[in-house]
């Protein structure tokens, strides 16, 4: 692929806007704060695949695990991960795969390994993952402002497993997951990413909230 091809994450322009604002200490975005208790960081472009299939079929689960090195979470509202990939439970026969493996490569491997009634859809262009980290108390309040879901009820995540929920987020939706380091990942649809970023900066303003490029 020629290297003059530019790729833009959903928050590409938001990063530019907020780093500019950060250097100027724009009161519109940061309310003049210099201390930031909360940090929002968008992951680099990665692969997202939507996977459908029969989770009670042992062959299906072991084939996916074989390709990704991650077991398929069959318990509702949970995810499993390793350093390269994560599998999030979205529904009784639906999972979201997040990986640094190239999407078409990953899809080809999965199609080769799986058989029967399955669906694999590359949705990499339409998603983004952002990490929310910072003061635990501020994080908890930010999430309470943003969603009807009670994230405080979740047990702490392990290094390779945790909870996830697809739910409302501000006036949009997100998949929210907890991580072992106490931070949260949000997976958003591309078209809503700008709105959610604006929301997070506004909702986190009282604690100081910035976007990290």
């Amino acid at each position: 692929m020629p290297n003059n091809i530019t790729r833009e994450t959903p928050l590409h322009y938001f990063h530019k806007l907020s780093s500019h604002a950060s250097s100027a200490q724009s009161p519109e975005i940061f309310n003049g704060q210099v201390e930031f208790a909360l940090v929002v960081k968008e992951a680099p472009l990665s692969s997202f695949l939507n996977l459908r299939g029969n989770g009670s079929d042992k062959g299906f689960c072991s084939a996916v695990a074989e390709v990704l090195g991650v077991t398929v979470p069959t318990e509702p509202g949970t995810y499993h991960s390793n350093k390269d990939s994560s599998i999030y439970w979205l529904g009784p026969d639906e999972w979201l795969l997040f990986s640094c493996i190239d999407a078409s490569n990953l899809e080809a491997q999965l199609r080769k390994a799986l058989s029967g009634h399955i669906s694999i859809v590359d949705i990499s262009g339409g998603q983004t993952l952002i990490n929310l980290r910072g003061d635990p108390c501020a994080l908890a309040i930010l999430l309470k402002k943003s969603s009807v879901y009670d994230f405080a009820a979740w047990p702490d995540a392990d290094i390779n497993a945790g909870r996830c929920a697809q739910t409302t987020f501000a006036k949009a939706t997100a998949v929210v997951t907890n991580k072992a380091d106490g931070s949260y990942d949000l997976i958003l649809r591309r078209s809503f990413a700008d709105y959610i970023a604006k929301w997070l900066l506004d909702a986190g303003q009282e604690f100081g909230c910035r976007i990290e490029a």
Partner: peptide, 13 residues
């Protein structure tokens, strides 16, 4: 009927 649906609206420009 064996069929799965996935929204790809956001994926494509």
């Amino acid at each position: 009927l064996k069929v799965y649906f996935t929204s790809v609206t956001d994926h494509w420009t």
